[in-house]
Design a protein around this nucleic acid. Structure first.
Lengths: 373, 373
DNA sequence: CTTATTATTGAGAGCGCTCTCATCCTTTTT
DNA sequence: AAAAAGGATGAGAGCGCTCTCAATAATAAG
């Protein structure tokens, strides 16, 4: 019979009640190298050689050692090995507090996944430092800084002035920043070419024939926002169109912020909108539809990110696809290279994006002027 | 001047080009306890006492030690400490291969977040073992099993027979399974009350007055699916309604699977549908709308999970909300308790859910029969 | 048959920290 | 004033592994 505790989600403390009467405690051997050596009748060093695949062990001895290891289920102690080798085979992923919307936006989960896969294939273990608030930051920082725990660090940029990012990136621990840091001098980082991507998106809208093109930007305190805005203005300038402040509205990467930003934009009557994230694009499209306007006939849209949601809306969203998974894997590989060959000189990798044409931009049916200006 | 490498997302190998000429290598001291002791003029033991906050150090000496620690930026070596104490203050989160849809579904990111917060507040470090495929599994398993690296394990259930889950949960390392494992005997786990939640959802549809209630289940090889189906059938039976196989359709937790499942269901003309996940509910609603039917007038819906998407659809989705964040935090606390007080006897925690009424179930306007049968 | 060469194994010194014990110096007690 | 108690510090033995060096055994070379 089991005793089950139903704990209300609202209750403070969970009651923990045992549902098995006390039992013999399983006592695993917890063998050491020395123990294995004794069992085989050789020296610790020899067993170590076998475990680490060194070549200078006679086949006969190797076989005997492997048998005992298999029979006993021996696993080397990670802490001892780390202490002796000064390597932990572990890297940390730091997501600072300034990066909000971690797990509401599908971007970070996918990035994490890419990083995890990168770690797997190179036999590294990933530890996750998710900074929830300022208090967390104070507790986490020393843990990250402790030597002997992490071989290297992947640090996600948040706001450009994030102190944690700056401090960690400039510390002596091997590190790679994900995204363009506020002050990139001397910092190794990997980023997507946001300027070019935004340029391509805007350019595409121009090519279709739109002239009054608005943009909904991300929150102002991030380099991503700055870069995407730069691409947008650059495309307009290149086309000889002057940038109209009334056509630029700030959002915060979320659906609702896109909805609100569109409300401010709607009276300026743009023909098309480039939104710096899909979530914002979806919110903006909702606002447009509520106003009784049609997409893409009245207002066309291009988003950014290519999240699953982009294909779930009534009018499928044209957008910029980032190679997120590859990005994560690449970041790991860059970091490993740094761990093995040194941090200096600083490097950077910029990855290209892809423009995905769906229904919301009107390219499929409108095609006003394919060659653009 | 910087040299920037634009790497196409399609290219195989990234070219890494330095953009800073070689520079003096920053050489951080990498001080040890012994070094600090020498600098202060005391013994290693005393410094250790200060670092670990032991009481038996004179205020004067403590002050001097702290000053040197501060000035030098000393951090104790994690590996050495782990080796000496046999504790790593690190726990692992294992997401086995059988749990697909990790990062497409917002559930896991949120869970991870809860777990990360739990770790933060208890000064534990979280490492993530994301098993991508069978190959990964073989590489990851020994890493997890290595002693000295992890103090405990949080293991997400996937399919009930997942060998990794079974093996790890029954190993000697302290562990907590997230979700009901296939064979729960002797395994400590934490779960949400899926049976009760599904019962409540179905019961609510009955209370409104619907009689032909269909369900879209999750993939058949999971305990979650079994539990939610059980709640559904239990509610029908309690109301004296026999279960009609034609009203049960299997999905796979994804939007498209819900869409497809609904297509099979639609000819059976249910008055209401209980979908075992919001994603499936959204897919199913799409199918219903495409068929020219109205929600909730023609077919009412209740989902499960309360993902953000649930409020982004035209007709806001009624659903079951899980206390995901709390769930993660609780799981960490349970694991820590086990680490400190032993695994046996096995325990389980079941958390309650909440029914969120929005528009899709029709309760707000229909209210056929509030008191149910 | 002696010497040089190589393959295999053993010895032992760390890696940087914790923790128990012993020692020394103050206080307090009788 | 002598003895007991207590507080602060030093000593040193591990924790389990790696890695260099020395020793031995086996083989090849002169």
């Amino acid at each position: 019979m089991m005793i089950v505790i139903h704990e209300s989600a609202l209750t403070e403390e969970p009651l923990l009640i045992n549902f098995f009467p006390s039992d013999e405690t399983q006592f695993m051997p917890e063998l050491t190298l020395e123990d294995i050596a004794k069992l085989v009748g050789v020296h610790r060093s020899t067993v170590s050689r076998v475990v680490n695949g060194a070549s200078n062990v006679s086949p006969e001895v190797r076989k005997r050692v492997l048998k005992v290891i298999n029979d006993t289920g021996y696993h080397p102690n990670a802490a001892a090995r780390s202490l002796a080798t000064q390597r932990s085979w572990m890297i940390g992923l730091v997501l600072p507090h300034s990066v909000s919307s971690f797990f509401t936006d599908p971007y970070f989960p996918q990035l994490t996944q890419g990083i995890a896969y990168g770690c797997n294939s190179h036999d590294f273990t990933l530890s996750l430092f998710l900074v929830g608030n300022k208090e967390d930051e104070a507790k986490i920082t020393p843990r990250i800084s402790r030597r002997g725990m992490l071989d290297g660090l992947l640090i996600q940029t948040g706001s450009p002035e994030d102190r944690l990012v700056q401090r960690l990136a400039k510390s002596s621990i091997p590190s790679v920043v994900l995204g363009r840091p506020g002050s990139p001098e001397g910092i190794t980082y990997i980023d997507v070419d946001n300027v070019q991507a935004a340029f391509n998106a805007t350019r595409h809208l121009l090519d279709i024939g739109y002239r009054r093109i608005a943009t909904i930007t991300g929150s102002h305190d991030s380099t991503v926002t700055a870069d995407r805005l730069e691409g947008y203005t650059k495309a307009l300038s290149t086309a000889g169109i002057s940038v109209d402040e009334a056509l630029i509205s700030e959002g915060a990467f979320t659906e609702i912020s896109g909805y609100n930003a569109m409300h401010k934009l709607i009276e300026a009557r743009p023909q098309a909108v480039f939104a710096a994230s899909d979530s914002m694009a979806v919110g903006a499209m909702r606002a447009v539809q509520e106003a009784g306007l049609c997409i893409p006939e009245d207002i066309a849209f291009i988003g950014f990110d290519d999240v699953p949601l982009a294909t779930l809306t009534k009018i499928q969203l044209s957008t910029i696809r980032q190679p997120i998974l590859k990005f994560g894997i690449k970041a790991v590989e860059l970091l490993i290279d740094i761990i093995e060959n040194g941090q200096k000189p600083a490097r950077r990798i910029i990855m290209d994006t892809e423009l995905i044409i769906r229904d919301s931009c009107g390219a499929r049916n409108v095609r006003v002027n394919q060659d653009g200006m």
